[in-house]
Amino acid sequence: MDSVIRALVVYLFLLVVFRIAGKRTLAETSNFELVVLLIISETTQQAMIDSDHSMTNAALVIITLLGISIALSLLKERFPKVERVLEGTSVVLIENGHLQWDRLKATRVGTDEILQTARKDHGLERLDQIKYAILEAGGGISIVPRGKEAE
């Protein structure tokens, strides 16, 4: 019983904390962010396992985490509102070539991050080559280059 409750509480706690922290928190894992992520995972592991190092406990914690994930995915599929609450919505950062400064500020995304994704995913060089930049619900940035409209 304890294993399932511990895993459930930690999962829900992380869900709430990361939702509050915002989409971009730890989304782009720089070296330092990777270290923070590892510290969080280590701390989480200790809270979930406690002092019970049996295989049964480990198996139950894993099954509970996967079970919650499956249950939430089913809930999100059935009730789109749940998805919006749990994951938030996408935010358009560049709309029709125009930078949306208020949204950039609110989501803590810099133009350098948009340019970085644009270079990596589309080989673009400048901001004016971007038609749309969207901060997806999952925290990633999607780029739609100019010129796509012609296709």
């Binding site: 019983m1 304890d2 399932v4 409750i5 139950l60």
Partner: peptide, 23 residues
């Protein structure tokens, strides 16, 4: 597999796989 997961979680909550009410 999903049903099996659910049954295992319920069994664990009931205390059949460790501490719990039925244990």
């Amino acid at each position: 597999g999903w049903i099996l997961f659910a049954l295992l979680i319920l069994a664990a909550l009931a205390g059949l796989l460790g501490h719990g009410p039925l244990s």
